[in-house]
Design a protein around this nucleic acid. Sequence first.
DNA 1: TCACGAATAT
DNA 2: AATATTCGTG
Length: 318
Amino acid sequence: MGFEKKMGENSRQLNLDVGSIFVPKTISDILTEVSMMHDFSKKSSKLDFYVHSLEEEMRKVDAFKRELPHCMQLLRDAIETLKKESLRWKGREMGPVMEEFIPLKGDSEGGGRAKLSTDFSEKKNWMSSVQLWSTPVHYENQDSVLSLRSRHQEEEGSGIDSQFQGCNNIKNSGGAFLPFKKAPGLSIKEQKRDSASAVNGGLSLSIPVAELELESESPDLISVKEPSAFLRPQLQQRKQRRCWSPELHKRFVDALQHLGGAQTATPKQIRELMKVDGLTNDEVKSHLQVEIQASHQEAAKHIGRDEGFLVGGTRVAE
DNA sequence: TCACGAATAT
DNA sequence: AATATTCGTG
């Protein structure tokens, strides 16, 4: 697993996906921002918002905790820091407008310096987009998220991009914490077909029964009509494609979860847990393989792809 | 022989 | 893109 190595000690930033926009922020930025809020009563709710966002990310990353142990740790630390800070402001009344200086944890370290210089221009954008994500994000509503994103991209391309200066990494970071893709095979069409042919307690293995016996007649008889059989007599006919209906896939995922993730689960265990009649180890194995690949890809997104792992986002450590 | 994961084929 | 098959290993 190359991921742990890639994670390395260099990855110190995580993307904070608040709604459809990636906001490059460091924990220090957040603390600074909150320290500048005059309304004390809102400080902790702001912090809670960040905590909530990060917790949501953590839930997503959790699926890859094996590949991204460091990532998890960073998130934990960040959440803890913000929670503590939030606690400090809990219950305080809105006080006189006394600017309070909060010593920032990572402020004295060199790591953040270069970045901070650009942060002020970024802050404006980030402020202007607050409205977008102060409302809960409904991840299932992919369309609106996507259209939001593309609208911004259009604006970017059409010259209003001064507004987006300094946010290039928004573009580049391409979805590190995007909501997971909808599981394949959930189209209405498929659901219809599935429910139509649903048997076996809602599960549909969807293997057409026809043609299963094609080769059954006298294997020793080499027929000219059956050139493929002649050319490769000992190769078995290709199996019917297993159709992984949504229901079937759900069972699969449940089994995976029960077994502790795609990394630890073994095809046989999964098949046994799924308790689906006629499902073979190989089929599960095959399915598991794409699952693992997907999780690797997903995990890879959580690691900075940019050189030096500066993916822009929340600096949660160092 | 079997189960497995990775690579490759369809 | 999704599934099946092959291949090398333990």
